[in-house]
Amino acid sequence: MIVGERKPIREILELLGDNTTVLVVGCGSCVTVCLSGGEREARELASILRIRGQSAREVTVERQCEKEFLLPLEKEIEPVQAVVSLACGIGVQAMSEMFSSHRVFPGLNTTFMGMPVEQGLWEEYCSGCGECVVHKYGGVCPVTRCAKSLFNGPCGGSQAGLCEVKPDRDCAWQLIYDRLKSQNRVEELLQVQPPKDWSFSRSGGHRKMSREDMLL
């Protein structure tokens, strides 16, 4: 799931500037589940804007990252001066593409791909590096969950199972060791892993994926 965090209200107000008629668009998928950009949050933001004397309305679509879901919004968007999208960065871009005559402002900062570790707390689990290796590390991703992305870890800073960069987080290498130990596979860690090929990741530039048989 994609996790986002609402921008500070002050920043949103600054973005909006003089635009007084605003449409707040929520997204009913990932950001609803992570409680940052769903129907409720859209209504809250619109409410705040109305309390401040602006004329704001809110609407929520199933997924902002599909153009088909955005089509019915056309009528809603027509009369407004500005749109605040509470979707992830993908949704904001899709909105901007569909309604290119309007300015679409992001209301969220898209932060990471992760999962809820407990109610109300999300943690990053994947950084989309393009070449998955978690099977070698007992199902714990060293690229994402180790602050230094070490393939041949741990570093010298791991203390009492916690990371030295962010001491409130578990050391990924501790987790890897514990998991492999419980599977009786610790020896596999002795194998030195070759350096990662980052060309599959962002370093290789904008990525694209296609499935020939599904193309129309």
Binding site: I9, R10, E44, I51, R52
Partner: peptide
């Protein structure tokens, strides 16, 4: 907190 950020005194 939201109201505070929006500088509304309610």
């Amino acid at each position: 907190a939201l109201l505070d950020e929006a500088e509304v005194d309610k």
